[in-house]
């Protein structure tokens, strides 16, 4: 698997798209800091970017890579290699190079602007960790969609729909249900609902850092123990790990049974 990972990664590192992605983040980081001169504010703006763009880019990039490397995959399949190694290797290659672009692209401008001397460093690190998780999760979801759909157009369509659903529609439905059932105690429900969407989970993690003052204003005891202690942090991180493992596990499972 490590060999495949190495070659996928190597392959991606020379692909134009990795650089586009990297340069995009680099430019974003510099522009944000140049416009604001204020790390804290830039971190908040970045959060929006990470929650919306990272999943979208990972999804599209993942689907694209999977379809584009079909022949490469077939070449590998005929080699004395385990199937799970091939797919997990490729997956890790893509997810790894995307994560690297993200971390370096954003990290370099922030470090140059004096991140290490700022107290925003924890917020920023959390942001990067969350971004890395989202990359892993959405690349895995994209691989799953591509693996299950021979038709490229269909695969792309489903992938973009999935992103749209998780990034926007899910929260809309979530809000609607909260408003419709506002008569009932909803704190457990609302916390549970955030864990079923990796984007909401990541948002929760960031809220814990940026908006803890507001979160602690709510009355519910469940809320209080969730956000007031480290419970929220651990649950969210745990669920993110689960969200990463499950699609990867399905990828491995399905790939063993698929015909090429």
């Amino acid at each position: 698997m490590l060999k495949i990972l190495k070659y996928s990664f190597y392959d991606l590192m020379r692909s134009r798209w990795s650089y586009v992605y990297f340069l995009f983040y680099l430019a974003l980081g510099f522009v944000l800091l140049f416009l604001n001169q204020d790390l804290s504010k830039a971190v908040i703006t970045l959060m929006n970017v990470i929650i919306v763009l990272v999943p979208l880019i990972s999804t599209i990039f993942g689907v694209m890579y999977f379809y584009n490397s079909k022949e490469f995959t077939e070449l590998l399949l005929a080699q004395p290699l385990k199937r799970t190694s091939i797919f997990l290797g490729q997956y890790l290659g893509v997810a790894g190079s995307l994560t690297l672009s993200l971390v370096l692209g954003l990290g370099i401008p922030f470090v140059l602007y004096g991140l290490f001397r700022s107290d925003a460093i924890w917020d920023f690190s959390l942001l990067l960790v969350t971004g890395a998780f989202l990359t892993m999760i959405f690349t895995a979801l994209a691989f799953n969609i591509a693996l299950s759909n021979e038709n490229k157009i269909k695969g792309f369509g489903y992938a973009v729909l999935m992103w749209l659903f998780l990034a926007v529609i899910y929260d809309g439905l979530f809000l609607l249900s909260l408003i419709i059932f506002e008569e009932y105690p909803l704190d457990s429900f609302s916390l549970a609902a955030t864990t079923f969407n990796p984007i909401d989970l990541s948002r929760t993690l960031i809220l814990l850092k940026l908006d803890i003052s507001a979160l602690l204003g709510y009355t519910g005891a469940v809320f209080k123990s969730y956000f007031g202690t480290n419970l929220g942090l651990f649950v969210s991180l745990g669920m993110l790990v689960l969200w990463t493992i499950l699609p990867v596990w399905r990828l491995a499972y399905k790939s063993k049974r698929k015909d090429f």
């Binding site: 079909k70 022949e71 490469f72 077939e74 005929a78 004395p80």
Partner: peptide, 15 residues
Amino acid sequence: YRQEIDYLPQIANFP
């Protein structure tokens, strides 16, 4: 066992 097989695929589209 594929260690013992050399395979030439139909469409050679490499990375």
